[in-house]
Simulated scan of single mutants.
Amino acid sequence: MLLTVLSAVVLPLLLFAAVTWQVTADGPLAEEDERLARRMREDAPPAALAEFLADLGNIEVALPVLAAALAYVWTRGRRRRPPPAVLAAAAAMAAVPALVAPLKALTGRPGPLGGTGYFPSGHAATAVVAYGAAALLLASVRARPRWARSVRWALPAAAALLCAAVGAGLVWRGYHWPLDVLGSWCLGVPLLAAVLAASGGSGRSGRPGQGRPDPPGGC
């Protein structure tokens, strides 16, 4: 578990540092990034679909999803105080603007449609943390029926696909370069690792008849 968490923190941050260096130095990776964006926009789906996917990264859309997951896990645990995973998820969401806004000002990357301050993408970071944390929280809840246990582990995969769709929509609509999205993913993964660490072991259930019985629910 510790090795997994460390890998989810160190490697993404190293990749983020490399991407940031290429973006700020206008290196060859940044040039290829812009060429890739132009090719993606040429092959983009209908504008309405691309816009819909990009809008899934709006705080007005993503935050209620996370808030619903926070409320469900907290109330299911029947605790007066929020469990550590809920606090970690809320802190991770609050960290998104605290990290993204200064980085946008420092890098000042021009956007596909003009202007500056596009790296990293706030919409992509919001989607990764909100949907990813919601999936991890829901997956951490003990589910008795076998079908429910199977479904809950599909939630992180569904969140990953959703975040990929948001990133593609942002590039298709010309709101961001691909590296803007990748940089946000690199920032979001360590935040999700903190949520995973806070909920560690909560999804495991002991064998019947061994140890104390499982609580009615929790995270």
Rank of each mutant, 00 (worst) to 15 (best):
residue 99 L to R: 00
residue 74 W to G: 08
residue 75 T to H: 12
residue 146 R to C: 02
residue 91 A to C: 08
residue 82 P to G: 11
residue 144 R to K: 10
residue 97 P to D: 06
residue 143 A to S: 09
residue 139 A to C: 12
residue 98 A to N: 07
residue 147 W to K: 13
residue 106 L to T: 10
residue 119 F to W: 10
residue 81 R to E: 14
residue 139 A to I: 07
residue 117 G to Q: 07
residue 75 T to L: 15
residue 111 G to F: 07
residue 106 L to H: 05
residue 91 A to F: 11
residue 94 A to I: 05
residue 111 G to D: 09
residue 94 A to G: 12
residue 100 V to C: 09
residue 124 A to F: 10
residue 99 L to S: 05
residue 72 Y to A: 15
residue 119 F to N: 01
residue 75 T to E: 08
residue 113 L to P: 00
residue 125 A to T: 08
residue 111 G to Q: 06
residue 96 V to Q: 06
residue 112 P to V: 00
residue 97 P to K: 10
residue 90 A to K: 01
residue 79 R to L: 10
residue 103 L to I: 14
residue 81 R to M: 04
residue 98 A to E: 05
residue 143 A to F: 04
residue 123 H to I: 12
residue 106 L to A: 15
residue 134 A to E: 03
residue 104 K to V: 06
residue 91 A to N: 08
residue 101 A to Y: 15
residue 95 A to F: 00
residue 86 V to K: 09
residue 78 R to K: 12
residue 75 T to C: 09
residue 114 G to W: 02
residue 135 A to Y: 09
residue 90 A to C: 01
residue 83 P to D: 13
residue 107 T to K: 05
residue 89 A to Y: 05
residue 113 L to D: 11
residue 99 L to F: 10
residue 96 V to T: 05
residue 91 A to Q: 01
residue 107 T to E: 03
residue 71 A to C: 13
residue 78 R to T: 12
residue 118 Y to E: 15
residue 133 A to W: 04
residue 106 L to E: 07
residue 94 A to H: 05
residue 126 T to S: 09
residue 84 P to E: 02
residue 105 A to C: 00
residue 107 T to I: 14
residue 117 G to D: 04
residue 97 P to T: 14
residue 141 V to F: 07
residue 109 R to W: 15
residue 147 W to I: 11
residue 139 A to Y: 01
residue 127 A to S: 01
residue 82 P to N: 12
residue 115 G to Q: 09
residue 98 A to W: 00
residue 88 A to W: 14
residue 83 P to N: 11
residue 136 L to E: 02
residue 142 R to N: 04
residue 129 V to G: 02
residue 137 L to W: 10
residue 75 T to A: 14
residue 88 A to D: 11
residue 120 P to H: 08
residue 101 A to K: 15
residue 142 R to A: 10
residue 118 Y to Q: 13
residue 136 L to M: 01
residue 93 M to S: 02
residue 126 T to Q: 03
residue 140 S to M: 12
residue 90 A to M: 06
residue 72 Y to R: 10
residue 92 A to I: 11
residue 97 P to E: 04
residue 92 A to E: 06
residue 130 A to D: 07
residue 116 T to S: 08
residue 94 A to C: 06
residue 139 A to N: 06
residue 137 L to R: 09
residue 76 R to H: 14
residue 78 R to P: 03
residue 103 L to V: 15
residue 103 L to M: 13
residue 95 A to T: 06
residue 77 G to N: 03
residue 146 R to S: 11
residue 112 P to L: 02
residue 138 L to Q: 00
residue 137 L to I: 09
